[in-house]
């Protein structure tokens, strides 16, 4: 069994009458990217704030990096790194000074601190800007410096709260690359995002959070199969094969122009195998086949929409 970097049970938080987290359970295996996905106000940032010891939970038990969050917050702090939504750099200090500040606070020796800072500046493409105040950095550079500062102490668990919000597509891609490299080295990433593409691209497991409750959990593909709208598209060499296929399958939308048949399906391997076996049995030859699952956007909109209907 793999160890859990985060194990939360029945996490609760409210501000006055407003319930922000309403019994959230999380299990994040070590060395994976776990993504918390949800619209604004779903409780993502609150979850990160609780898990990273910034604010206390009202209820629930949480273990982070093997330490009890409520009883041993300092041990948790020693194991984690946090890069928040708002850049957590000292803008009056230079990039290099910011990194050295972190090295001092992580109690590295002077020499180790300098070596680490130089290594991170190089890795995050900040060498040229190292001696300029962070206030002069672009958004993407500040975010890179921010993440570099988080990495100074080599944390085993990193919280990334909307790390690419407000970044241009190129900076976003380079951030994704960095995240992948981290996980390749065994680091666990807890990622919150409102970009479905980002979760789809990076995450091993995704949970959907809406109004303080988990409404779905799984891999991106599992989530996509949760909702209708998927289909298998078959293309044939001629009209007679298309007609034959339609008769055999007994369902689907045929397009005589494109010579395609769209068969509604959840897109699972079993459904595909059954469909292919059926056509094979009747000797209907297929030219091309593709599986269309709904993208996460569909899942997201459908699931969060349903939830809203239900609470009304």
């Amino acid at each position: 069994m793999t160890n859990l970097a985060i194990a939360a049970n029945g996490l609760r938080k409210s501000y006055g009458d407003k319930v922000v987290l309403d019994g959230v359970d999380l299990a994040v295996p070590e060395g994976t990217i776990f993504s918390l996905l949800g619209p604004n106000g779903a409780g993502k940032t609150t979850t990160v704030q609780i898990l990273s010891t910034l604010i206390p939970a009202d209820g629930g038990t949480v273990q982070v990096a093997g330490h009890d969050l409520a009883r041993r917050p300092d041990d948790v702090r020693g194991a984690i790194g946090v890069t928040g939504q708002y850049s957590a750099v000292d803008k009056l200090l230079t990039g290099e000074e910011n990194l050295l500040l972190m090295a001092d606070l992580k109690h590295l020796s002077r020499r180790d601190g300098k070596r680490k800072a130089a290594e991170l500046l190089d890795r995050f493409d900040l060498v040229d800007a190292a001696r300029k105040p962070a206030a002069t950095y672009s958004g993407g550079m500040q975010r890179r410096l921010d993440l570099a500062m988080t990495l100074v102490g080599d944390p085993r668990l990193i919280f990334l709260d909307e790390p690419t919000t407000g970044l241009d597509p190129r900076s976003r891609r380079s951030m994704w690359q960095i995240v992948r490299e981290l996980v390749a080295n065994g680091v666990t990433i807890f990622l919150t995002t409102q970009y479905l593409e980002e979760a789809d691209e990076l995450a091993d497991r995704i949970v959907l959070l809406d109004h303080g409750r988990l409404i779905a959990e799984g891999t991106a593909d599992e989530l996509k199969r949760l909702i209708p709208g998927g289909h298998i598209q078959l293309r044939f060499a001629g009209t007679h094969r298309l007609d034959a296929a339609r008769q055999v399958v007994g369902a689907g939308v045929a397009d005589p122009e494109a010579l395609t048949l769209q068969v509604p399906s959840d897109g699972s391997v079993r459904a595909i195998r059954e469909l292919l076996a059926l056509l094979d049995e009747h000797s209907v030859e297929i030219d091309e086949m593709s599986v269309h699952t709904p993208d996460l956007d569909d899942v997201f909109l459908t699931l969060t929409g349903q939830k809203k209907e239900a609470t009304r």
Binding site: R77, I80, G84, Y86, V89, G153
Partner: peptide
């Protein structure tokens, strides 16, 4: 009001 304070709070210092 700066994010860096939140960072300090999540560190073992």
């Amino acid at each position: 009001t700066e994010g860096i304070i939140a960072r300090f709070r999540t560190m073992r210092i």
